[in-house]
Amino acid sequence: NSLAEAKVLANRELDKYGVSDYYKNLINNAKTVEGVKALIDEILA
């Protein structure tokens, strides 16, 4: 998966839960796919 794909999928996942734009910005600023995954795990914990 590319970083861009990971960000799109992460933001879709956040949308399902009604997560605020603050967290979407964190996702969009992530530098690695692993970073995106770690943020998602933390946000949805």
Rank of each mutant, 00 (worst) to 15 (best):
V33C: 03
V33N: 03
L14W: 02
V36N: 00
N11W: 15
A4K: 10
A30K: 03
E42G: 08
E13W: 14
L9E: 08
L39V: 09
N28H: 08
A38K: 12
A4N: 08
A45E: 07
K7W: 02
N29T: 09
E13P: 01
A10G: 04
E34A: 12
N28Q: 10
V36A: 01
S2E: 13
G35T: 13
N11G: 07
R12W: 12
G18F: 09
K31W: 09
A4R: 10
I43D: 00
A10S: 01
V19F: 15
I27S: 00
E34R: 07
A45Q: 12
E34L: 08
Y17A: 09
K7R: 04
Y22M: 08
N29A: 11
N11E: 07
L44V: 09
D21S: 14
Y23H: 05
D15S: 12
S2M: 10
K24F: 05
E42F: 14
D21R: 13
K7F: 02
L3H: 00
D15K: 10
V8W: 14
K16F: 07
E13K: 11
N1C: 10
A4C: 06
G18V: 06
D41L: 15
K16W: 04
R12D: 04
Y22S: 04
L44D: 02
N28V: 06
A30D: 01
L44Y: 05
E34V: 04
V19T: 06
V8H: 11
K24Q: 05
I27H: 00
L9V: 08
K7M: 05
K16T: 06
K24Y: 11
E42A: 13
Y22W: 11
A10V: 02
V19P: 06
N29K: 10
D21L: 13
I43H: 02
L3C: 03
I27G: 00
L44C: 03
D41S: 11
K16M: 07
I43F: 12
I27D: 00
N25C: 09
I27R: 00
Y23R: 02
K7T: 02
N29S: 12
E5P: 02
N11C: 09
S2L: 13
V33Y: 07
Y22F: 10
Y23V: 05
K37Q: 10
S20F: 07
N1G: 09
A10Y: 03
N1Y: 15
L14C: 04
L14Q: 01
A45Y: 14
L26T: 03
V33M: 08
R12A: 14
A30P: 00
S20Y: 05
L14N: 02
L26A: 07
N28I: 07
A10L: 03
E42W: 15
L14I: 08
L39S: 01
E5G: 06
D41W: 14
